Amino acid sequence: MQLSRFTDYTLRVLFYVAINNDRLATLNEIADFYQISVEHLRKVVHALSKSGYLKTYRGKHGGIRLNRPADQINIGELVVQTEGPQPLIDCAGLECCLTSMCNLQNTLAQAQKAFIDTLSQYSLADMLNNPRMQQRLISKVG
């Protein structure tokens, strides 16, 4: 299974904001850090704000920060939210001579569930529990 770029950027934004949560982070700062388009990040931040993961502040001194503690942000839940409930393959409506006897869709659904179940064992705080990663994520701004 491959995660979408949107989910990848979602995780990166949360990593950055969580480590720098003692202040407001900006889209430009995050875009510069990861070398990602500000427009891509704007969509990610908007979705994270709507979902309650981020708090945004407008204006000249605005920015973003976590809206809940990192240990209360579940990685599995976040991935399901950003990826959606799409099956890995969807045989409905296909004209396949194996449809009535094939177990592939059910097997892949079990694998997808195991993938999400594994991610659900971790919080954002768990993902950031690495001093080298924390040091790298600490912004030099300000």
Results as ranks from 00 to 15, higher is better:
Lys113Asp: 11
Ser4Cys: 12
Tyr9Val: 04
Thr82His: 04
Thr99His: 06
Gly59Gln: 08
Gln135Ala: 15
Leu98Arg: 06
Gly63Met: 14
Tyr57His: 12
Ser100Tyr: 13
Pro85Tyr: 13
Ala92Met: 06
Asn20Gln: 09
Leu94His: 03
Asn129Asp: 15
Leu108Arg: 04
Val80Tyr: 09
Ser37Gln: 00
Thr99Pro: 04
Gln86Trp: 10
Val13Tyr: 03
Ile138Leu: 14
Arg65Val: 02
Val79Arg: 06
Ala25Trp: 05
Ser120Phe: 02
Tyr122Gln: 00
Pro87Gly: 10
Glu83Thr: 01
Asp8Arg: 14
Leu108Ile: 00
Val17Tyr: 10
Val80Asn: 11
Ser139Lys: 07
Cys91Met: 01
Cys96Asn: 00
Ser139Gln: 12
Gln121Asp: 05
Asn74Glu: 14
Cys96Arg: 00
Ile64Lys: 15
Met1Cys: 00
Glu29Gln: 01
Lys140Glu: 11
Leu119Ala: 05
Leu41Ala: 07
Ala114Ser: 07
Val79Ser: 06
Thr26Trp: 00
Arg58Asn: 11
Leu14Pro: 04
Gly63Ile: 13
Arg136Gly: 14
Leu3Gln: 08
Ala109His: 13
Pro85Cys: 07
Ser120Pro: 13
Gly142Pro: 02
Ala92Asp: 11
Phe33Ser: 01
Cys97His: 10
Ser51Gln: 12
Leu78Arg: 02
